[in-house]
Nucleic acid binder design. Structure first.
Lengths: 147, 147
DNA sequence: CCTTGTCGTTAACCACGTTAAAGATTAACA
DNA sequence: TGTTAATCTTTAACGTGGTTAACGACAAGG
């Protein structure tokens, strides 16, 4: 790791942090993939729908940082699985409003619980001191991400 | 956030940590996308090659947690861009060994510096106390990811 | 009204993952 | 040693999900 060893001290933290966050993030994301027939994308969009409530295609595209056609396609898939529904906006005929079905909502919540269980188990293997460090770090990480 | 509010205390840390790590990870990954004509995947594979040195297709597949055909294709793309080279293993004719070119290596290092610069800037906006917390947290996050 | 802008969808394309099957080479063993 | 079995990579066929471009439906302003 010569690139790391000879790094100026000021970038050392950045490198360590990037490595650790990327790796744990990848791991958490992998937990996703083995869900029912759902892909990570479909699950992610469903999650947004649960969080925001019924939304237009444009809103979803913006949140997912994706172009509208990508949303159209994924919504179509969710619809055919009975996990989401599309209805015309009564106030503006151009827009179509997407919402989760009850089943869709249930899947999102179940998936979230499942991933939390995995992480809870890993956290339980740490020392109280290590857990304290993570608890302090979480809000700082959020602040970084939103900067 | 009723789902968070009524969560048992033991899963509260897991939820906070998952949210923050996922979000920062996404942010760091996005920094990737706007690089030369290279996709995130190609850059990632090139990075592995720089880290490990010349490697077989099978090794790369394992590291990237992907099936061999996916590696074959990406290597082909890197090859046509002059960033990687493939040679037959002299000791085992079935294997082909992939290595970066000088240019490929340069691109990886430049990209890493660019992403670190972004993070260094964000870190500089934090308080010394917050930076200390992150420095302590990084190794714990790694431990979690590798668990 | 009628033109102009906006929202969503469709179509065509590309990146990248998968599995299945074929090719080449090595390893094992009768 | 020669045949058979195992291993590594590649090719082929397919699915998902991103993109841009072009079109249709509706809304809004002149």
């Amino acid at each position: 790791m010569s690139t790391v060893d000879r790094a100026p001290a000021s970038t050392r933290l950045a490198q360590d942090l990037r490595r650790s966050v990327m790796r744990l993030g990848r791991r958490l994301r992998q937990m996703h993939e083995e869900n029912l027939g759902l892909t990570a994308n479909q699950l992610s969009l469903l999650g947004v729908l649960v969080k925001l409530g019924p939304s237009t295609v444009g809103d979803l595209a913006e949140v997912e940082k994706v172009q509208p056609p990508a949303i159209t396609r994924t919504v179509k898939a969710l619809e055919s699985l009975g996990l989401a529904e599309r209805t015309a906006d009564p106030e503006d005929g151009r827009r179509s409003v997407v919402a989760t079905t009850e089943r869709g909502r249930g899947i999102v919540l179940a998936d979230r619980r499942r991933r939390d269980r995995w992480l809870v188990k890993r956290l339980a293997e740490l020392s109280p001191e290590e857990r304290r460090v993570l608890a302090e770090a979480a809000p700082v990480l959020l602040k970084l991400a939103d900067a």
